[in-house]
Simulated assay, not measured.
Amino acid sequence: MLLTSAALLAILAGYAALCAVSPFGPCRKCSGTGLRELRKGSKLCRRCHGQRRRLRIGRRALNSSRRTHAAGTTPRTTASKGAAPWH
């Protein structure tokens, strides 16, 4: 049990480091080419818009949690100078 927990923690730490170092990964829909092969020819990938890279799931979750934290901890401005900060 301890070995399994340590291995899972190491895998999660490795993925977090990967998301921090390289937040973009290759698009899975077009295999990083930016184009989709169709019967009549090729077309830009709708998922990555031809940019060949997509934001990783872990980085998307980190950005979302940072945005939520920033929105929840924004200081309120007081209406008047004489107002106490705890009201």
Rank of each mutant, 00 (worst) to 15 (best):
H87K: 12
A71Y: 10
A16Q: 09
S31N: 06
K40G: 02
R47E: 08
S5H: 11
K81R: 07
G34I: 02
T78S: 07
A61R: 15
T74G: 06
A16N: 14
C30Y: 03
G32K: 05
A6V: 11
N63G: 00
L62R: 09
H87D: 11
A7V: 08
I11G: 01
H69V: 04
L35H: 04
A7H: 02
N63Y: 00
A79Q: 09
L8I: 13
A83D: 13
L3G: 10
A71N: 14
G25V: 12
P23L: 05
T73W: 01
P75R: 09
Q51A: 05
R56P: 00
K81W: 09
A10P: 00
P26Q: 11
L38W: 04
R54A: 09
T73S: 15
R56K: 07
H87E: 15
R60W: 07
C27S: 10
S5C: 08
H69S: 12
A84T: 14
R54C: 15
A10H: 07
A7R: 13
H87T: 11
K40A: 11
A13N: 12
T78R: 13
P26H: 08
S22K: 10
R39L: 14
L35V: 02
G50E: 01
R28W: 10
L35Q: 06
T77S: 15
C30Q: 04
C45S: 01
T4M: 05
A10W: 05
C30P: 03
I11Q: 13
C19Q: 04
G50K: 02
A6I: 13
R52N: 07
T4W: 05
L3F: 05
L18T: 06
R53Y: 07
P26S: 06
R67E: 14
G25E: 13
K40P: 00
L44G: 03
L3Q: 09
F24G: 00
Q51T: 15
Q51G: 01
R67W: 08
S64F: 07
L9Q: 11
S65W: 06
L12Y: 08
R76A: 12
K43I: 02
G34P: 01
L8H: 13
T4E: 12
S80I: 09
T78Y: 09
H87F: 06
T68H: 14
L3E: 10
R39A: 14
L18D: 12
R53V: 01
R47K: 07
Q51S: 03
L44V: 03
L9T: 04
E37A: 03
A6M: 14
S80R: 11
R28D: 14
C48T: 02
I11F: 06
I11M: 12
C45H: 00
I11S: 12
C45L: 02
G41R: 02
L2V: 10
R59N: 06
P75A: 10
A61N: 08
G72M: 11
L9K: 15
